[in-house]
């Protein structure tokens, strides 16, 4: 398992796409927000938390097909399916690798981008916490979507279409935590819900993803 994780990490770093592209896309979304709603600081600071969450979600979405697509093309996936390592574990590891290479940089960068959007001071802490708790759910749900569309020719757009509705609860609670935190309200309620969603998806989604992947590889 550690070997698989290391391999995925190294591949993501060598290929270069992982870190850079997601982060750059996140930055672009953040830059586009003031262009689209106007530069008024008080308006920006009100929507900052939500805009950052949306940007992080989209950046995450963009890189989902890389979880499985390359391994599907070169046949690694078939090897994984027949290896002694349970496919559930392999998928969880791949989701973890995706989280480490794509989502974690976003979490680190989000407070910096928060400055651009005039995020209120108490918001920085809550934004980081909510992203830290919420993004693992995004990665692991994304792995399910990637498994559904693996091997399809027009998979990219379809993947987004399938995964976005599944992201709704995570986004709602995550953005709620950040928003309440930014406004100085108590954010522990939604944070607990967000944690619950993340824990639940980590526990259950690998089984669904593995079942789907077995069907797709059949």
């Amino acid at each position: 398992m550690r070997a698989l994780l290391l391999r995925d990490l190294i591949l993501a770093i060598r290929a270069g796409g992982g870190f850079g592209l997601g982060l750059a896309f996140f930055l672009i979304v953040v830059v586009l927000v003031p262009f689209s709603v106007g530069p008024a600081p008080e308006l920006l600071s009100r929507i900052a938390a939500g805009a950052l969450w949306l940007g992080a979600l989209l950046a995450c979405l963009l890189s989902l097909d890389r979880i499985l697509a390359l391994d599907w093309e070169d046949g690694t996936l078939d090897l994984l399916a027949t290896s002694p390592l349970p496919l559930e574990a392999a998928l969880a590891i791949k989701a973890l690798a995706h989280w480490l290479t794509t989502a974690l940089p976003l979490v680190v960068a989000a407070p910096l981008f928060g400055v651009l959007l005039n995020l209120p001071a108490p918001g920085f802490f809550w934004l980081t916490v909510s992203l830290l708790v919420g993004t693992p759910a995004l990665s692991i749900i994304g792995a399910f979507g990637a498994a559904l569309t693996v091997g399809l020719k027009r998979g990219g757009l379809l993947l987004s279409l399938l995964v976005v509705p599944l992201y709704v609860p995570t986004l709602i609670f995550g953005a709620e935590v950040a928003r309440r935190g930014a406004e100085g309200l108590d954010a522990t309620g939604p944070l607990a819900m967000l944690g619950g969603i993340t824990a639940g998806t980590i526990a259950l989604m690998p089984f669904a993803s593995a079942a789907v992947l077995r069907m797709a590889l059949k």
Binding site: P165, V168, P169, F173, I197, M205, A211, V212, M215
Partner: peptide
């Protein structure tokens, strides 16, 4: 196969969304 799995997982998330939206 694939759409069946999507339907099942989607149902769980649809119910979750319903509660999330209520909260929101």
């Amino acid at each position: 196969d694939l759409t069946s799995m999507l339907c099942i997982v989607g149902s769980v998330f649809a119910v979750l969304s319903r509660y999330a939206v209520n909260f929101w």
